[in-house]
Design a protein around this nucleic acid. Sequence first.
RNA 1: GGGCGCUUAGCUCAGUUGGUUAGAGCACCGCCCUUACAAGGCGGGGGUCGGGGGUUCGAGUCCCUCAGCGCCCACCA
Length: 854
Amino acid sequence: MTPNVPEKVSLEGLEDKWSARWDADAVYKFNRSVSRAEPGPSGRERGIFSIDTPPPTVSGSLHVGHVFSYTHTDTLARFHRMRGREVFYPMGWDDNGLPTERRVQNYFAVRCDPSLPYEPNFSPTPAAGKKQEQVAISRPNFIELCTRLTAEDEKVFEELWRHLGLSVDWGMTYSTVGERAQRVSQRSFLRLLQKGLAYQAEAPTLWDVDFQTAVAQAELEDRELPGAYHRIRFNGPDGRDIEIDTTRPELLAACVAVVAHPDDARYRPLVGKVATTPLYGVEVPFLTHPLADPEKGTGVAMICTFGDVTDVVWWRELHLPARAMIGRDGRIRQDPPPGVEDAPAWAEVRGKKINAARARVVELLRESGDLLSEPRPITHPVKFYEKGDRPLEIVTSRQWFIRTLDHREELLARGEELRWHPSHMKARYESWVNGLNSDWLVSRQRFFGVPFPLWYRLSDDGSVDYGSPLIPDEARLPVDPSTDVPDGFSEGERDKPGGFTADPDIMDTWGTSSLTPQIAGHWEDDPDLFGRVFPMDVRPQAHEIIRTWLFSTIVRSHFEHDCLPWTDAAISGWVLDPDRKKLSKSKGNASTPLPWIEQYGADGVRYWAASGRPGVDTVFDEGQMKVGRRLAIKILNASKFVLSMAPGELAAAVEFTALDRALLTRLAGVVEEATTSFEGYDYARALERTEAFFWVFCDDYVELVKARAYGGQGPEAAASAHRALGLSLSVLLRLFAPVLPFVAEEVWSWSQERSVHRAPWPSAQEFEGVGESDLAVFATAAEVLADVRKAKTAAQVSMRAEVDRVTVLDTSERIARLRLAEADLKEAGRVTDLVLEEARERSVEIVLAAVNQA
RNA sequence: GGGCGCUUAGCUCAGUUGGUUAGAGCACCGCCCUUACAAGGCGGGGGUCGGGGGUUCGAGUCCCUCAGCGCCCACCA
């Protein structure tokens, strides 16, 4: 094909032009006829490269942080596609869970009340004002709104991703709450249940009093909060006082024991005796436990059910009774815990919020004289649900768990087996697994999510038989137990004595997201496809969700398939604002990416993203985008020149000049390095090496051969330049294509029919005809050219200024190299007389033509 | 409390197995409208590599130690 170079080259409109064309030509369509791994012809890899794409949360908005990490993945996808592999690169939408619920509540000013009946024609308009009264609606109505809103959000997301140039197969999207996801989640759950790896238990768990749901260990975060030590007096045996420091005096009624360290000599006489709580007069045992810290407070702690997770440990390990007093709404319960029924103090706190109860208890203690000192303010870490606003409480509830504690060793071995990029991220996985203190709590008391596909029998007295749940056949999945009926029952028997009742809970968002490989790969629904793409090659994700998404995905795959879900994990860093804070929507420091794409082009934005090292937090840098845009423009211009020189069909018989051989050999090295880097998931290094070469190519090589290419040294010498320029450009465009897909495609299209993104990745073979070369020929010539430029700059004359004579004294070796590029050097520097002489020390003398020395 | 990472020019960062005068881009200064490119090109100034100690013929690059920053984990009365 004869190059068809536009008169004027420009980046304007490339995104629209090429994203439409790629779509029309199905450039990124996954070809599932390829088998998982098959040897390719002549060293090119064949087979499939599958990516476990992170499904972005559609209820949020995309910001530059997303663009950053998704670009990284896309460069890898493009690289492997060019290597000849079919890339399985679906896009998922995470529309599951609380963020969606919250967005729907705010967007439509509604709230879900599961007790309400469905209203078929309910269709609210988006809430206008800020504070609008929330309308209570039924669960089915609420879920309809969730679905409606997420569908709209997905469209916006897809548009942006296309604009950014993600080479996703848009025919293969999935959602984490759609029917497929439900089926996969429920099937996997039922299989865990069969294997005894999922179980139900009534146990104290961390509870968010606002969201009214249990929360798992993985969703916790500590926040430093002001608090106060209150020293209070318990009555000990023999009339002796026991002094105890507590930050939660309001829980006094829930006290079931006091505890000291077994080695604490101060309290040894009291151990095994009984202490009496102030205000309530409840007798509790004085016990010992190694977790009691003699250094903390008075060395004696009161154990309450439950003030914190240590209480839970003590309660469990010391086999204490429960005396729960906090309700699911975060208030003190109405009904008193056992043992305090008759205490007048209970009436003072019942039904109160935590803070009010605390204040009242302190007053009461003060009045009774049991408050031994005024509260001493401290700051201490308090556990929060990561999306929550109030401290977590611990309440006892029935929940589903997946066993992880018993499998820690196996899971650690999986972490060992996985290839981590960067490798030190493995440490985070290990510290998480080693720190597990409970099985994975997978049930949530929410509405929008995947329900547990279970019902329970109701006995004749109406009590629930949790022991043997009613399980649907896998072929029925997905089921919604709140509307579907278990086999052998009828709807009329729902919630009736002798009938059945649905499991009310939904799965944790990670309960579904942990199955993205299975969802995306159509596990069981399409065994042929699943066999081709699973286990996957790579999981790209951010480091802060190693403990959640990465961990839980390994758990599911380990239990279900007895293998890793992928061989490699590519962990991306965060995007930081100039103050080094993580960009996030909630902090309001994250900008929407579209304006940046419009200003610098998708390629410019991608360039910035791809400059961020794998796993390294990177500062948001508009300057880098600007640099990326300039690079793209430079590629346009350089390509325009090269293609106007080089014929479409390269004459293969031409003998390369020494300078051209040196340039091409150097480029072959860059190809090798970029290839190795991409194989090792280091897109940033690949880009850096390619770019560095490209600038040398433009500034030195093109300048050195320009005149020769115009024919200054005859047709044969010109042909060598043409061929070297043409080959270099072809290789460079393909090296740039993963990072700068738009400009690479634009330029490629000037001389090629097919997409650059399906062109073969450059290989050493393409340089086979170059022959032996001395790399230093190019470097040495470029050095002298730089000297000439320097002299012209010093003389404040144009680069086109004539030079009468350049005298180079240098070692015989280097002089020999310069002779090989003598003609190019003379023309590039406009040197009339180039004198090359051997000498011990290098020196360069430049005599500019008199006419130019004004 | 444990762990991981980072600390190189004003800024953002490269420096792969230790080896010639430590690199790039941005910013800054100067020059040049050169037929691929003036939203460009060419050239220049500027760091002794967080502090200290050690190994070595030789260390930004390995070891020890200290400091600061960030993150992950932790049973936080």
